[in-house]
Design a protein around this nucleic acid. Structure first.
Length: 528
RNA sequence: GAGAAGCUAGCUCAGUCGGUAGAGCAACUCCCUUUUAAGGAGUGGGUCCCGGGUUCGAUUCCCGGGCUUCUCACCA
């Protein structure tokens, strides 16, 4: 029964304490449990209550109550995260998805089989407990175990995390381990669990908000013969039976607008998009975006919608519209972001002029403004744009470098040049600017919206302009989708569309500096 | 794709001006039935990321490679 017996059974070569034998030691524990006739991986453990639920009922939400002496037994379960061995009794801490609680267990209340389990427990094991809630002499909320069942034996030891008064000791800081083996990160770091619970809540609240407003969620192809609807490099794949090349979608936009053509008036899709581009703290090759389309609406409708959604999420999930951001960011500067609407609105070209003195608006009427000219202007304020090939790409560089980075508080940037907005409708009476806006928070683009272009002939022209821009060396342009033009010919009502990057939204609300912190399994280079 | 930093025990980290390494926690043995970063006594544990080179000798110096992080570029 004692641990010395186990050791006596171990072959000498198993006594080594290196990395391999750590698992071997546990295998030995496992075999001892099996030899006792106990199943270390039982089929089921029913009637488990959440630890938080038990705490609230017996110890009070503020942890200021003490259970009655004759309190009923409760049943719960979780992973063993701490063992304090007192000899013939032990204190365990178990953790489930809702929280932690202490278990007090000894040979006075456990039967022989359960006591055997107790003395053969390791950190990381999952146990089921039945017992009476009570407070120890030191006041710790506990369960006095009357039965203790092993539900799953831990064979791959977890990092040991200790904490005192909220401070964590020896947590895992190896970022690679946290991303590659997220199950360990989740098992060990409460903050990681909280982040992904928040992510789930954000997505749920957005869906419910839109359902409430009469929107319908749809699913459009992720595998597309033409990857359009945005300007980005796609992933390519192959369908064997049809023997065709397919692309993973870079945006659902053109399909969603086909649905508006078909007669649905309020649709959205919240799902993955794929872009074959670099990986950074703000980019993962697969990322989640929501696109929302509403017929008989315009970009003003979308402006209200995006502010409503952000404000609603902050209030519902964080309880306030003023939220901190940046404490964990690399620069260490904390900002208080106010998501309260209405947000500040600025004009795209005007904002560049204000910040830099450069006036690009006068080039709007120019059919094919020279990139050289723009580069000259950019270099006059110290910006190098050597790798760019078109006028408006250079302008966008100036915007990102001098305007975007300063948009800490929520700001709506409006009215982009038509040349870089091939799917947006022109402002009436202004042939050069479009009814488009992008919300920015913390210097980051959080979305993109416009009054959707529904003139098929105009759309055809815009696609042609994109092709021409590509010919003149633009890095990324939007491919022509003939069938989409055909759809517009059938007739699409005036429509407003909005896209929001969900990952970045979660980063904002969860106060995370890296997109990898809000994606459960971010793409990493495979280990050799 | 470019630059910078990092990689040492299961975890968090020291360290070696070149002589094959330490701490705390974890693990193992013993004591302990209200402890809590439990405590006390003892023990073991390392391909110092990988491969070359220089050297009597490399974890350390040099070269190459791997992976990660950060910054930049592209995108959301």
């Amino acid at each position: 029964m004692s641990k010395s017996i186990k050791l006596a059974k171990m072959a000498p070569e198993e006594k080594k304490n290196d990395a391999v034998s750590l698992t071997e030691q546990r295998l030995h524990q496992l075999n001892a449990i099996k030899a006792k006739g106990i199943d270390p991986y039982p089929v089921r453990f029913l009637g488990k209550r959440d630890i938080l639920d038990i705490r609230n009922e017996y110890f009070g939400i503020k942890n200021d109550q003490t259970p009655q002496e004759d309190a009923q037994n409760v049943t719960t379960a979780g992973r063993v995260v701490a063992i304090r061995d007192m000899g013939k009794a032990q204190f365990l801490q178990i953790q489930d998805q809702s929280g932690k609680i202490q278990i007090y267990a000894g040979n006075k209340t456990l039967n022989e089989e359960d006591y055997f389990v107790l003395t053969h427990l390791d950190l990381g094991d999952i146990v089921g407990v039945k017992g009476r809630p009570f407070r120890t002499q030191k006041g710790e909320a506990s369960i006095h175990a009357e039965s203790l069942k092993i539900l799953s034996k831990n064979l791959a030891p977890l990092p040991v995390v200790k904490e005192k008064e909220g401070e964590t000791f020896d947590s895992i800081s190896d970022i690679e381990l946290r991303y590659r083996q997220r199950y360990i990160d989740l098992a060990v770091n409460p903050d990681t669990r909280a982040t992904f619970q928040l992510r789930s809540a954000i997505i749920r609240e957005i869906r419910e908000y839109l359902y409430e407003k009469g929107f319908m969620e749809v699913e459009t192809p992720m595998m597309q013969a033409i990857a359009s609807g945005a300007a980005a490099r796609p992933f390519q794949t192959h369908h064997n039976a049809l023997d065709i090349e397919l692309y993973l979608r870079i945006a659902p936009e053109l399909y969603l607008k086909r649905l508006i053509v078909g007669g649905y008036e309020k649709v959205f899709e919240l799902n993955r998009n794929f872009r074959n581009e670099g990986i950074s703290t703000k980019h993962n090759p697969e990322f989640t975006m929501i696109e929302i389309y509403q017929a008989y609406a315009d970009y003003n409708t979308m402006m209200d919608l995006v502010q409503d959604i952000f404000e609603m999420l902050a209030l519902k999930l964080l309880g306030k519209t003023e939220i901190p951001y940046g404490k964990t960011a690399s620069n260490g500067v904390e900002h208080i972001i106010s998501l309260k609407k209405p947000w500040k609105k600025i004009e795209y070209l005007e904002s560049i002029k204000e910040k830099t003195g450069l006036d690009f608006a006068k080039f709007l009427s120019d059919e094919n403004p020279s990139a050289k000219e723009a580069k000259k202007m950019a270099s006059s304020i110290g910006l190098k744009a050597d790798t760019l090939n078109t006028f408006w790409e250079v302008v966008d560089l100036v915007f990102s470098e001098r305007v975007e980075v300063e948009l800490i508080q929520p700001t709506v940037v409006m009215h982009f040049p038509k040349a870089i907005s091939p799917l947006a409708k022109s402002i009436p009476g202004n042939p050069y600017l479009v009814e488009r806006f992008e919300p920015y928070i913390m210097g980051r683009e959080m979305g993109n919206a416009f009054s959707e272009l529904n003139d098929p002939l105009e759309q055809e022209l815009r696609f042609k302009e994109q092709a021409a821009q590509q010919a003149s060396g633009a890095e990324e342009t939007m491919p022509t989708d003939e069938d989409f033009v055909t759809a517009l010919k059938v007739g699409m009502p005036p429509t407003g569309g909005l896209g929001i990057g969900i990952d970045r939204l979660v980063m904002l609300l969860a106060n995370k500096a890296s997109i990898k912190d809000v994606i459960l399994f971010p793409l990493l280079r495979p280990q050799k």
